[in-house]
Design a protein around this nucleic acid. Structure first.
Lengths: 165, 165
DNA sequence: TAAGATTGAGTCCTCAATCTTC
DNA sequence: GAAGATTGAGGACTCAATCTTA
């Protein structure tokens, strides 16, 4: 992940100084906080953030099941990446694959009871990490600004469709 | 990287709702924007963000050189991770290793002229990405809040020393 | 032909063990 | 023994090619 950046080079025409400073603060903070939370989870033998994401996506889906390609999109992984990730999570017993009734090409990932239990086990240390490393250091006003600004940023970059890949 | 999260579980004692919403906005935005910038750089055959970080760290260091363990820390990589990364960047001709005069155990990474050129080539598309996907969508006030809040978050999580690893 | 999923090859990271020098 | 760096083994991701079904 990006830690350091650019810069004593000529500034870009399109990018101003506060814009660059905000970007640096953004990625530096991300690296620090996510790294710390990952290590806390690992230290207690809990599921990693990636596994957490998969289980959460399933947890929020109807019947706790999702088509593999939908799941891949939700966790921002390539299809093949998801295939292998799911192999590991399935081997751990937290999900199982089920054939799709209507379309014999496809499959569903379904969360098991063990998966739900793993999610619940991990949540307290995850929540503690978010609080201790992140939200405890923000005022209510700052939280509001972050929510508004960063949701907008995400929405705009997702809708700025690229050439297609 | 973490895309999705927790929750319709019981909230944590320590984590309030706006805190969680801010966290989600934060990591969702990061995934979207960084992913997009990485793809833009790759599409033009430029150095990845990781290589960029290494070259930038060297660019900002006295004499364009840094001890390997210092460099590892600056780019948030393990020592072995940095060793291998540097192998690749060195093979590309962007850095070279030099023995440390005072301490024969250690080595310096030194940026070459080619490395500096690669940095300069990548900067325009990187800057454009930061502007288009991130800072163009923020008001001046929001930039100010992000800078203040996220610098504080990073500083606190870096100083909250952990058991040591 | 195309869509869903998997496999093969290759990249890039980590931890633990090792080698060298302090 | 400890610090700096590398190596071995393995985990986890990507793109491109493949297989199956639509």
């Amino acid at each position: 992940m990006s830690i350091t950046l650019c810069y004593d080079f000529a500034m870009s025409d399109e990018l101003d100084d506060p814009g660059l400073a905000a970007w640096k603060a953004f990625i530096f903070a991300h690296t620090a906080v996510v790294g710390r939370i990952e290590r806390d989870l690992a230290a207690e033998g809990l599921v990693s953030l990636t596994w957490y994401d998969v289980l959460t996506a399933l947890s929020g889906a109807p019947d706790h099941r999702l088509r593999l390609h939908e799941l891949a999109q939700q966790v921002a992984l390539s299809r093949s990446g998801l295939t292998r990730l799911l192999d590991r999570i399935e081997a751990a017993g937290y999900v199982r694959r089920e054939p799709s009734p209507g379309d014999r090409r496809g499959a569903y990932a379904v969360m098991t009871a063990e998966g739900e239990a793993a999610l619940l086990r991990a949540w307290p240390t995850y929540a503690r990490g978010i609080a201790h490393y992140f939200s405890d250091h923000l005022s209510d006003e700052e939280k509001g600004v972050l929510i508004g600004a960063l949701r907008r940023v995400r929405a705009r970059t997702l809708t700025t469709r690229e050439p297609d890949r």
